[in-house]
């Protein structure tokens, strides 16, 4: 039922294609030379030690790095045949198609209802807002807990609920891709489990890219895994992140091709 691990994503439809992507902050290079084809309708996990640039790469996928001073990008990120970093691309439009969920739950200081309606309203949603809010909350497995208090502040929810609210908010703008930057790192195991279950549901409709520090989580939720590592460059003594191996999750964890991957997933470092 699974394709051979060497042909990782060739049989799949490609959603995002990273081509020789290098990202630097100021004159310090953070990540260099990433090639990766992220398949459509799957969950792709980025794992690796701290400082290897996996979050940086994730943020490059919907131009979130534009908001960081001194961040420069070389290479191409191709989404539906368009390079996201071409001059005529509108980053706001990119973020409407490629939504993002952050490490720390960041609901707006508004009601639960308005948190979800906000994105839809600014995107010119004309349909039934009540229905959209309910549908989004149901998809984020938060409807039952919040249906009686939609007018309460988003801050009144627990951390795990807030994170699911943020996911619901992202779903409400009906993006094609959802990027998640360590969405469970601030949450307890039960909330984490709920979010992981939700991701299995979500991948039927969306392409999901998740950065995680938790390798078990990568095994549980993802179809493909990219292992990033920090490498010392020979010509200088600065450290720079790079993609070591990208393949089906199963083969990354069971039969990795690279020694560094083997060491990392078996817990020998990192």
């Amino acid at each position: 039922m699974t394709a051979p691990s060497t042909s990782a994503s060739q049989s799949e439809e490609i959603c995002l294609s990273l081509q020789d992507l290098s990202i630097s902050y100021g004159n310090k290079e953070a990540v260099r030379g990433v090639y990766m084809d992220i398949p459509k309708g799957k969950v792709t996990a980025f794992i690796g030690p701290s400082g290897c640039g996996k979050s940086t790469v994730l943020r490059a996928l919907n131009r979130m790095n534009d908001l960081i001073d001194g961040c420069a990008i070389r290479g191409r990120v191709v989404f539906q045949g368009q390079d996201l970093y071409q001059r005529d691309i509108d980053p706001v439009e990119v973020r409407r198609r490629i939504g993002m969920v952050f490490q720390k739950p960041n609901p707006f200081p508004k009601s639960i209802y308005d948190n979800i309606a906000f994105g839809a309203r600014i995107n010119g949603y004309r349909g039934d807002m009540d229905e959209l809010v309910e549908r989004s909350l149901r998809k984020a497995a938060l409807w039952d807990e919040t249906k009686d208090k939609l007018r309460d502040s988003g801050y009144a929810l627990s951390g795990g609920q807030q994170q699911r609210l943020c996911i619901a908010r992202t779903i409400a703008i009906e993006p094609e891709v959802i990027l998640m930057d360590e969405p469970c790192s601030a949450l307890d195991p039960i909330s984490t489990l709920k979010i992981e279950e939700m991701m299995h549901e979500l991948k039927k409709n969306y392409t999901i890219v998740i950065v995680t520090h938790n390798m078990q989580q990568a095994v549980r939720v993802s179809d493909y895994t990219g292992f990033f590592n920090v490498s010392n460059r020979e010509d200088r003594d600065s450290k720079v992140g790079c993609l070591v191996e990208f393949s089906e999750t199963e083969s990354i964890f069971n039969s990795p091709q690279q020694l560094a991957t083997q060491d990392y997933v078996s817990g020998r470092f990192g």
Partner: peptide, 25 residues
Amino acid sequence: QELRWGAMGVGASRVITITRVTLPA
């Protein structure tokens, strides 16, 4: 800063982020 990112992450332009999220906060 997360609040601004959140707004940007659901496709808000800078003006909308400021007028609808940051200023009210």
